[in-house]
């Protein structure tokens, strides 16, 4: 797994736009899970676009550890789950869309089929592979977009609010997927307003007003009003020695009501 280096990176959407991001100077280590959050319009999705290569840096450079710049990266290196799945799903049917990437890289029909079927199964879409994408609900479309990235087998995952519009079953599948990615030491950039991702994050990045700030987990939890964090702040202040912040909810329940 290779590191991604941001060296004085800045970008904007033209002189008439209020929106700009940077300067960014940091390194995302290979295999890290970075949790990115911040207010609406702050620049989080622009960071995703920079990594995906759909927006170019107007200043500085984004490089891999070997010095290769963004335009030179292999096309399957970065997988981008977009915030709006409609921007991403382009085929007529679910199975066709999920199979687009393997149809380019697979060396055999069997490899293509395995990659496609595995990705459909990972997101619980096996029974829906023939569905016309226009007939899907928002959550189903989001799962289709995610399955297409699973089939792409990228080394770097950029996920922009992937839990949006998903029911709890879909969110469980997503959580398991991210757990598997961490086990495989894939690099994950998780963009979300949902404090749950703190549990899997190695580092936390707050982006607001186009500026990026690294935060500790506690600071990020406080900014996102993480309910678990807030709950334990009060518990620990009122019941000194209660302990349990790091216990599982089941253990805490047994502690409170045996």
């Amino acid at each position: 797994m290779t590191a991604i280096i941001f060296e004085g990176v800045g970008t904007d959407y033209g002189k008439d736009s209020h929106y700009a991001l940077g300067s960014l100077d940091f390194t995302i280590q290979g295999g890290e899970c970075i949790f990115v959050s911040g207010p609406n319009g702050g620049g989080k999705t622009t960071l995703a676009r920079l990594l995906a290569g759909t927006v170019k840096a107007v200043r500085g450079k984004i490089m891999l550890a070997d010095g290769s710049e963004r335009g030179e990266w292999p096309p399957t290196l970065v997988g981008w789950v977009q915030q709006e799945p409609e921007h991403q799903v382009i085929a007529e049917r679910v199975g066709e869309d999920v199979g687009i990437s393997p149809s380019w890289y697979a060396g055999s029909y069997q490899e293509y089929q395995n990659a496609k079927d595995g990705a459909l199964a990972a997101l619980g879409l096996t029974a829906m592979f023939q569905r016309v994408v226009q007939s899907l609900s928002g959550g189903e479309l989001h799962r289709t977009a995610m399955a297409a990235i699973v089939a792409q087998r990228p080394e770097v995952w950029v996920m922009d609010e992937p839990e949006a519009m998903m029911d709890r079953a879909g969110q469980v599948a997503l959580w398991e997927l991210v757990g598997q990615l961490k086990q495989k030491r894939a690099t994950v950039v998780m963009i979300s307003h949902d404090a749950r991702w703190l549990a899997v994050a190695d580092r936390c990045l707050w982006i607001a007003g186009g500026q990026a700030l690294w935060l500790g987990h506690e600071d990020m939890a406080a900014r996102l009003a993480d309910p678990w964090h807030e709950f334990w702040e009060i518990m620990e202040s009122q019941v000194p020695g209660a302990g349990g912040r790091d216990k599982s909810p089941g253990e805490v329940a047994r502690m409170l009501w045996p």
């Binding site: 029911d167 709890r168 079953a169 969110q171 469980v172 404090a195 749950r196 309910p227 678990w228 709950f231 599982s248 909810p249 089941g250 805490v252 329940a253 047994r254 409170l256 009501w257």
Partner: peptide, 19 residues
């Protein structure tokens, strides 16, 4: 529904235990 976070999970556990 599967819980969205740890506090929700704790509460479901407490309710299941008739707290």
């Amino acid at each position: 529904v599967p819980p969205s976070g740890r506090l929700e999970e704790l509460w479901r556990e407490l309710l299941d235990r008739s707290a």
